[in-house]
Amino acid sequence: MRVNFTVNGRPQEADDVWEGESLLYVLRERLGLPGSKNACEQGECGSCTVRLDGVPVCSCLVAAGQVEGREVVTVEGLAEYAKQRSRGGSAGTSLDEAQRWAAQGTDSRTGEGTGSSPRAALSSVQQAFIDAGAVQCGFCTPGLLVAADEMLEHNPDPTDADIREALSGNLCRCTGYEKIMDAVRLAAARQGEAV
């Protein structure tokens, strides 16, 4: 079958889709967007989390045919999605300002990216995950970023219990979650500061 839907703001058409294929498979193998991850393919780990018409879902549990005519945002489009949101002001924060705040940090410590900085392109949650050390192997990271960004959209000042509850569907095996907590707190603080 053919599936037409919007991914990260761009219309996409996937041909020869077998009815049993998941949204995750179509994103990864047909559209060249492997950022959404395949850690369990049974809806337990959250590594494939995407926004479907704004709602965070496990894309491994969504049949490709179900997304016909709908809008999907993946980790590849998260920075742009956050930028659009900040322009629309729907989340009440200016992401542009948040990014400037982040870029001022005392440490461009790796010596990388000193030229044409890729950092400016990242959303505040993405930048916070790097800065706080929340990324190790990184396989859980895309799903966590989409879930954390969604939480901060409707809960810009979360308590620790709120963060844990919102991210409880995303497994991480490397970090013990402490740096992930730090990252989400940092992203919330930077967004708050940028208001």
Partner: peptide
């Protein structure tokens, strides 16, 4: 600067938060 003893950031961090880092299951 950026030497031993500092908490420098991962060189693969940006790729890993944008979904561009190519894991073995992403090979095509």
């Amino acid at each position: 600067k950026g030497g031993v003893g500092e908490s420098t950031l991962r060189p693969d961090g940006t790729l890993k938060v944008t979904g561009e880092f190519a894991y073995s299951s992403d090979m095509w």
